[in-house]
Design a protein around this nucleic acid. Structure first.
Lengths: 242, 242
DNA sequence: GGTGAAACGGAGCAAAGAACTCCCTTTCCC
DNA sequence: GGGAAAGGGAGTTCTTTGCTCCGTTTCACC
C-alpha cells in the first residue's frame, strides 16, 4: 500500500483527518489519543481493501473486505463512511501509482526505452490487478480521479511525441491509440489472467510490431499461446465473471 | 433472423416442435391448427429477442424482450419456457452464423484471402452484436452450443494451417492466437462501439501487421483513432456497463 | 482493578432487480 | 355463439447489496 501508514506500535495521535475517514473521527482542534484497536483495524482494513480490490475490483462489497480483514461490517463502515469513499481511495491510490510509473518512464533519456517502458509498465501494472484495470477504463465519476487523469495525459503525449520525433513509431500511430492498446492487454488479462498471467505480453509484443516503425526488427515473443486446455478453462471461467 | 420462420398468413400447422418451445405445445401425434395470434406473437417475440440480444446480450430479461415485442411477459414464457431456453436458441443461432461464415472463408481458393476473410469476417460479425460477442467468449454451459463449437475448431485450424503453408504467417503464430485476437477486437467494440462502430478495424489492422509474415507490406489503416471527445464519451459510458 | 466512553460485530433491514406465475380478460376457430 | 386456448400484467418469490441498530467488548485513564 502506498497510502498513509497507521501502524502504530505505541498509541498514536490522530492527524487532522485520515483520507478515508474524513469528517468522521475529527472532533476537536485538539489532538486526541487513538485507541490501539482502532489503529489496528484501520491497518487491517486498508490492507484487506487493497487486496480485495486487486482481485475483485469495484464489485467487491464492504462486507467482503470486512470479512477479509477479520472485522465486522460495522467497523468497516466506521472507517470508510460508505462504499464510494473506499472506492475513491482505492482508485486514487492506483492512479497515483500509474502517474508515478509514467514519470519514471518519461525521465528515461532514450525515446524508445521511454516509450516501451511506458507501455509495458502500465500494462504490467494492470495485468495482475483488476482494480487497476478498472481505474484505467473509467473514472467512475470520482472527481479526484479525473483530476489525476488530467496530469497523466500530458506525460503520455510527451512520451509518444518524443518517440515519434525519434522515428521509431509507425507514422499513423496516435497518442489516443495507447489507451486502446492498454485496454486490449487488460482484456487479455481479464480473460486469461487466471490461466496464464503473462499472456498479455504475447499480444502486446504482436501489437508493438505493428505499432513501431517498419524498419525496426521484429521482437521475440516471450510468452507461448494458450494450449487447448488453458483456452477451455479460461472460457469456462468467463461466465462467472458475468 | 436465420431461425425457422413461423410467419404464417394462413393458419398453419404446427411442426413436430419449434426449437424454442420444445415440449410445450406438442400434444398429440396429430397435427393441430395453430391460432393466428400465436403465430403472430411467436414471430414478434423471435424478432424482438434477436434485436434485444444483439444490443444487450445475455443480460436482457424476458420482460425486456416481451415489452420490446409488445406482448405480455406471460406470453413470452408461454413461447420460451424460461430464459435459459431463449438464450440457448439465440446462442445457437449466432454460432451457426459464425460456422457458416467460416465455411465460406474456408472455401476461398487463395490461402491469404481465406485467412483474412475468416478473421475479418468473424470480427465484423461480432462488432455490432453484443450477443455474438458473448457467444464467442463462453458457451454458457449450453450443450448444443459446445457441440457447434466442436465443428468450428477444425475449420479454423485448416484455414490457419493453409495460410502457414503458404508462408504468409509469422512463424510464431498459432491457431489459439486467433480467439484471443478476436477477443481483443470484441473488447474494442465493447468499449468504443457506441462512439466509433468500426474502430476495431484499426486495431485488427495493427495486429495483422504483427501476425502476418514480415516480408508482406504493411496494410493501410482505414479507420482513424478516437478523438479526445470520443475517448471521453467511451470512458464515461463504460461504467454503466459494469 | 474499576469505570465509562468509544469501538466492535453481526444479525437484520430496506431497496432493487430479476425470474417466473396466477388469474381474470380477450381472442379465435369451429 | 360457445368454449378452449392464449393473452396480459400485477404480483410473488428469491437473491443481492448497501447499510444500520443495538447489545457486548475493549481500552485509556484513574
Amino acid at each position: 500500500m502506498s497510502t498513509d501508514q497507521v501502524v502504530a506500535g505505541e498509541t498514536a495521535t490522530v492527524p487532522g483527518d485520515v483520507a478515508y475517514a474524513a469528517g468522521m473521527t475529527a472532533t476537536d482542534p485538539a489532538s486526541r489519543v487513538v485507541r490501539k484497536d482502532v489503529a489496528r483495524n484501520q491497518a487491517l482494513l486498508l490492507a484487506a481493501a487493497d487486496e480485495v480490490f486487486t482481485e475483485r475490483g469495484a464489485d467487491a462489497t464492504l462486507d467482503d473486505i470486512a470479512r477479509h480483514a477479520g472485522v465486522g461490517v460495522a467497523t468497516a463502515y466506521r472507517h470508510f463512511e460508505n462504499k464510494q469513499a473506499l472506492l475513491a481511495a482505492m482508485f486514487e491510490d492506483r492512479l497515483n501509482k500509474i502517474l508515478q510509473m509514467m514519470e519514471d518512464a518519461d525521465a528515461l533519456p532514450d525515446p524508445r526505452e521511454s516509450f516501451e517502458a511506458f507501455v509495458y509498465g502500465v500494462a504490467a501494472m494492470q495485468s495482475h490487478d483488476r482494480g487497476m484495470r478498472e481505474v484505467m477504463r473509467t473514472d467512475h465519476g470520482i472527481d479526484k480521479v479525473s483530476a489525476i487523469r488530467q496530469r497523466v495525459q500530458p506525460i503520455a503525449i510527451r512520451i509518444v511525441e518524443r518517440a515519434r520525433a525519434a522515428g521509431i513509431l509507425r507514422p499513423e500511430l496516435e497518442t489516443n491509440d495507447i489507451p486502446m492498446v492498454l485496454w486490449m492487454t487488460g482484456a487479455i488479462s481479464d480473460y486469461a489472467g487466471p490461466v496464464s498471467p503473462d499472456l498479455w505480453r504475447r499480444y502486446l509484443d504482436l501489437m508493438l510490431d505493428g505499432m513501431l516503425a517498419e524498419s525496426l526488427p521484429r521482437r521475440t515473443i516471450s510468452v507461448p499461446a494458450l494450449d487447448q486446455s488453458q483456452l477451455e478453462t479460461a472460457m469456462h471461467n468467463w461466465h462467472s465473471h458475468r
